[in-house]
Design a binder for these strands. Structure first.
Lengths: 255, 255
DNA sequence: GTAAATACTAAAACGCGGTTTAATAAATTA
DNA sequence: TAATTTATTAAACCGCGTTTTAGTATTTAC
């Protein structure tokens, strides 16, 4: 029963070894994730050991996710900005986190929505919801958002929008840049109708910027496809057409 | 090579039998979906036959989904409403479809986001995107939305919001009523900033209504939990507190 | 300090998933 | 009718998360 006994020491060392190994494996292969067999082998234990120490694969992932959420929350609390700016900066911070360990987060996300009954949803969703709700309320009391809207309703919509974009990034349909632009765009869109005089211009500017960023993303993706793929003439003509459309938009924005 | 030969007839009969059986199985058990073994047994064929006739499980699901998308599209084109109203009616229509075969759609959704590389995404997302984009453009040319926003950017945000809510319904975290309310709320929020004089009041009304619907959903869920669960006193007190908050909101709305 | 009890590990197996293969039966063709 | 193509089937394959079985090492009790 002594926590410093030889047995307990070895146990907790194994525990952290396994967690570290799991993180390493996820970082290494963003697409495949890891199997419990691979984890056990890489950690130098048998397949049954992780089950004795953690119970299930989901439990391991939950631990890892909770750790990262805590450090995100801490980093967020140290941001200097306030009001609406803080919300946009929180998006940038999130992007930094995702960028730092892309394989890890992609795998985590995959597991979160693979099995909705695993409790991952609560681990991931609960704190995030509170975070955004608090930012919204703070922005309201600080006079950056009008009063008279239900903070819960907006928080639900906002967090869902963010989560959906992160999920799309995690499944490989979006690069980080476009993901961030989409989130900024959606957030600005949602806040536009609630902005006060103190923030309206800033939000509007954010919205315009995000819109242009999105167009740039799509333009870049288009010209990339135009170079790489071996297309038939019709498809090529269509891409060229779209590309010209985007370029005309850009020159219009420059005016 | 004759399509009316005995062999081809039997083949196409088997094909449609299997598709029908798959749909039936999905309707019957919304949570578990179906395994290929169960499908084969229920259809009276061996496990390998579906693979000969369709290639993979995903292909079967894609066929079924494509059928339903087509009938949704047809029903949508027969709606009498226009402009922004059409968009909200399209949400109602979607709800009707989901309500008609809940088990089916829940399983389909589960598969769509279980394996993002299966092509289901394209089947589901492509037509839907075009549909909403067209509605947005039509509403703009009809004068219900201001000009000067990128229709693609908004369509991306809008369809993603809708898809995220449907997905949450499919995974059992949302009933259909709340799903619809959330979608209407998010849609109204996004359109608020773009509404013209011709539509601003209507959109604003939609927004208020959706907000109240959401509050009603949450209030109902709260009082349900309050009745059913065996809670400790603290948790019960918290729920009661929230419930009173919602009731105060409702009386404020009635004013 | 030794013996009994306990806890932990590792190897193999379980059950289930989608999918593929080897052999058999059927329909087409000559 | 004989030869050949085609489609179905039963059985197996492979990988997954997880559980069981048996042995080993640590702790506890005397």
């Amino acid at each position: 029963m002594n926590t410093t006994s030889v047995r307990e020491m070895a146990k907790s060392k194994r525990r952290s070894d396994i967690l570290q190994t799991a993180r390493k494996l996820m970082l290494a292969s963003a697409d495949d994730g890891f199997s419990m067999r691979a984890l056990a082998e890489a950690a130098g234990v048998s397949s049954a050991t992780p089950y004795n120490l953690f119970g299930s694969k989901h439990e391991i992932l939950k631990r890892l996710l909770a750790d990262d959420l805590a450090s995100y929350q801490k980093a967020l609390s140290q941001l200097p900005s306030t009001g609406v700016e803080l919300m946009f900066d929180a998006v940038g911070l999130m992007r930094q986190f995702l960028d730092g360990q892309p394989g890890f987060y992609r795998n985590i996300m995959r597991e979160v929505n693979a099995d909705p009954g695993s409790g991952m949803r609560e681990v991931a969703g609960g704190p995030r919801y509170k975070l955004w709700r608090q930012m919204l309320k703070q922005a309201t009391t600080d006079g950056y958002l009008v009063q008279g809207f239900d903070p819960d309703a907006l928080t639900v919509t906002l967090t869902q929008m963010i989560a959906a974009n992160v999920r799309e990034w995690a499944s490989g349909h979006l690069d980080l840049t476009e993901m961030e632009a989409r989130i900024r765009y959606g957030m600005a869109m949602l806040l536009l109708a609630l902005a006060t005089e103190a923030s309206r211009e800033a939000v509007q500017q954010r919205w315009r910027t995000a819109e242009q960023d999105l167009q740039n993303c799509w333009r870049a993706a288009l010209s990339k496809r135009l170079q790489q793929d071996d297309l038939d003439d019709d498809a090529r003509a269509m891409l060229v057409n779209q590309l010209q459309y985007f370029q005309s938009l850009q020159s219009a924005n420059a005016d």
